[in-house]
Amino acid sequence: MKKNRLFENIIHGIFLILGLITIGCVLLITVYLVISGIPAIREIGIIDFLFGKKWASTAEEPAFGILPFILTSVYGTAGAIVIGVPIGFMTAVYLSKAAHPKVRTVIEAAVNLLAGIPSVVYGLVGMLVLVPGIRKLFNIPDGASLFAAIIVLAIMILPSIIKVSITALDAVPKEYEDASLALGATPTETFFRVSVPTAKSGIAAAVVLGVGRAIGEAMAVMMVSGNVPNMPSLFQSVRFLTTAVASEMAYSSGLQQQALFSIALVLFLFIMLINAALNFFLKGNKEG
């Protein structure tokens, strides 16, 4: 009997360790980013690092200001949200409420496919269709720009926005909608004035999730944004926080490499903020 108890305890211990692995991974990532990100910030000075407008990591007198990257990431994400959210939101309302079940199945499958396409494929199509298109349309010397990145990001966040919004809209109690219809509202009015407000925290979560996706995307953006550390401007070549890390990592060393770790740390802090916001909205959804 005693041997049995011991055996059960060992098994319990093994499963406990497996359960704790996720916490271990989060700690590992946090600790590594903080430890490797702090030295460069110390050496450069936090004000010069965060608000410096010039990034010249390989110059003779190197400058490590990441304000251009921060602003590019913020503008790029905001632009993607401005374009992607209305389209995604409207599609979600249609699919959840108005569409014929067969239409819904087909388009949902298409949206899932959109989510599964590798980001380098978006980058490739962006490089060969979007970038030349923008060059011709706006008559600028190079189409690789913030604008191209915004379009690609807007497309890439569509699936997250549509899927999470649909889940929220599907969860709206049928009685609410029936009551609205019985009071004489038309179906379309009911969707937007009853269903959408009821599902608002879920839809907010969808937007926040989209923000997280957009700010963290690296490869597709790297292929269409030109990758020059300019201050952001819609039709100029720009560099994001993610692409700043990706583009110099392979050949960097010393302070330059440490500065890249610091950029990653800044990106990580952004993501943690977004996660906290996401959790806030999802919790509100469960209680509401």
Partner: peptide, 19 residues
């Protein structure tokens, strides 16, 4: 543990690459 799992799924792949 569940919060840690959610955090992990929100971290961008470039950060995974770095760590």
């Amino acid at each position: 543990i569940e919060y840690a799992a959610e955090t992990l799924s929100g971290i961008p792949s470039i950060i995974y690459g770095l760590v």
